[in-house]
Amino acid sequence: MQKAIKKYFPIFVLPTMIAFVIGFIAPFLLGIYLSFCKFTTVTDAEFIGLENYLKTLDDPEFIHSLWYTALFTITTVIIINVLAFAVALLLTKGIRGTNIFRTVFFMPNLIGGIVLGYVWQLLLNGILANFDRTLTYSEWFGFWGLVILVCWQQVGYMMIIYISGIQNIPGELIEAAKIDGASPSQILRNVTIPMVMPSITICTFLTLTNGFKLFDQNLALTNGAPSRMSELLAMNIYTTFYGRAGWEGVGQAKAVEFFILVSVIALIQNRLTRSKEVQQ
């Protein structure tokens, strides 16, 4: 059987491989090539070397969106994970209606980002209107609006991952800790958290990359207003590519830098949290 799998391996892998090459590898390589080009549409590129990359470095809006996105990601990673973990702890205590709560918390995740963005725009603008303000009044209104939206959307998803992590902790470990006289906070710190480290790895990875890649919600909620100051990285790339004649290549160069940045951060994060995981 093992031999048979080896023998027919190419046939089984082929369809996925073709799709992967067409849908990912080819556009990715083309994208890297285009970042060194000047072009109007992607089919008429002219090679110009590193010029696009130099332009990205003295684009103040790009630099702004870089630290704005970093700040946004740090904020959301912390808030989402703390909230999700807290809710997961609560919903594994066996309180009444646990399943309903789990479902309700998970549901926001099923709604698309654009829809969420518009719904929250209405909600938040409705509240802010009482103070004669709107979400696009300043970049910080937009910032916290986005944080609220993204937390609302992702806490439920991360909660499910944490719940499964907590449920996998062997009951005897907790029991043993209790018999040894550990207080609930000691159990949490010394048993529960080390045991759910794999879930923490996954959740921080997901929230971190989600934070950097956020686009739909940003587009629908503030669309970068005011003055493109509430623009996250992905959207900055989009507006550079589409919004400025002659800057398509620069947008492409930003996209390549973006890819490198996100991969490096994700790899570092993975290594850091992985090293804290314990074997059961």
Partner: peptide, 20 residues
């Protein structure tokens, strides 16, 4: 001169109107 010019002008107009 460009779309970008218009956008920057629009942003400045908005910030002026808001008082920011």
């Amino acid at each position: 001169p460009s779309e970008n010019w218009k956008n920057n002008l629009g942003s400045a107009l908005l910030e002026y109107a808001q008082g920011t």
